[in-house]
């Protein structure tokens, strides 16, 4: 078994499990957190497929921006729910602090100590080039020109619809 395959199995397992856990949770917040985990595992799957850019976008846009916004909305709407999570599990605070410190230390290490581009073999270099923004851009504007443009019209229609259904003042 290659490393690629093992990574695929791990990420696929996390993605499938978190998806099932997400739809079976009663608390909306915990469900949303599992959805974030699911997105993170998906971006891992993209990485194993040499699609680095999509993996990064998945984390930044979905797991980052959209889901955090989503989570805040849920928390603002149902503050009692959020409180009870920490009341029920007092030790969770320490775990949260520990994970936070760990991630922060990791970021510091990457910025100040790590040398991520060291030890790149030509093979690795080539596999990185497959999933770059440049490659994606070229595909989008040549082979996938029409689907790309039609996605724009789809989003336009959805925007008009959202405004019509949610914003338009009714007469009378």
């Amino acid at each position: 078994m290659s490393l690629n395959f093992i990574l695929f199995l791990i990420f696929a397992f996390i993605a499938a499990t978190s998806a099932v856990l997400m739809i079976t949770r009663k608390s909306a917040i915990i469900a949303a957190l599992f959805l974030i985990l699911n997105f993170a595992a998906l971006s891992g799957l993209y990485l194993t497929l040499n699609a680095q850019f999509i993996a990064v976008v998945q984390v930044i846009v979905y797991a980052g921006a959209i889901m955090v916004l989503f989570l805040f909305v849920i928390m603002l709407l149902r503050p009692s729910d959020e409180q009870s999570i920490f009341d029920d599990n007092p030790k969770l605070k320490w775990l949260a602090t520990f994970v936070g410190v760990l991630v922060f230390a990791q970021i510091l290490a990457i910025i100040f100590i790590g040398r991520p581009s060291d030890g790149l073999t030509p093979d690795l270099q080539r596999s990185i080039e497959v999933g770059t923004i440049e490659a994606i851009g070229r595909e989008l504007y040549t082979t996938y020109l029409i689907p790309f443009q039609s996605a724009a019209f789809l989003l336009l229609a959805a925007t008009i619809g959202a405004l019509i259904l949610a914003k338009k003042k009714l007469e009378d």
């Binding site: 039609s150 019209f153 789809l154 229609a157 619809g161 259904l165």
Partner: peptide, 13 residues
């Protein structure tokens, strides 16, 4: 798929 979604989204609205 793109065409189907385009049509369906408009119909939902």
């Amino acid at each position: 798929f793109m065409g189907l979604e385009q049509m369906s989204v408009c119909f939902y609205i």
